[in-house]
């Protein structure tokens, strides 16, 4: 019984580590989407949220769920996000490229005049 308490505590701490890391990455990705200068660079920031942030949160919740159907459903959710997010990102990127949206290819300097015209 004493033993079980420590196992529970260890699982709680591991799951907290995963979930907090995931939340930090989700927030960092969201801030990146706001901060970065053009569409193509924002796409990379959105990818941070879709991959590491989402998977970390899902793994942390799976540890919380224990051995049950909840864990199986979370695993399916994780696999599904893992498989569809690159397809969706590529679809958006390809549509933007095909429609003629030009990517920013010069060095971006937010504080050095507006010579390279990064649309904020």
């Amino acid at each position: 019984m004493d033993y079980g308490f420590w196992i529970d505590l260890a699982l709680d701490i591991v799951s907290a580590g995963f979930v907090i890391t995931g939340a930090v990455f989700v927030l960092a990705g969201a801030i990146g989407v706001i901060r970065l200068p053009d569409f193509y660079t924002r796409m990379h920031a959105a990818g941070v949220t879709d991959t590491l942030g989402a998977e970390m949160i899902v793994i942390g919740l799976m540890i919380q769920g224990g051995l049950s159907l909840i864990t199986v459903k979370l695993a399916l959710l994780g696999v599904f996000v893992f498989l569809t997010s690159p397809t969706a990102t590529h679809a958006v990127a390809n549509a933007a490229y095909k429609s003629g949206l030009k990517p920013l290819l010069t060095r971006y300097r937010p504080h050095a005049g507006s010579d390279d015209g990064g649309a904020a």
């Binding site: 969201a30 959105a46 989402a54 997010s85 958006v92």
Partner: peptide
């Protein structure tokens, strides 16, 4: 892109 990313966060 924002709608798609919003959806991922909604799922989470």
């Amino acid at each position: 892109l924002a709608v798609n990313s919003f959806g991922t966060k909604t799922v989470l």
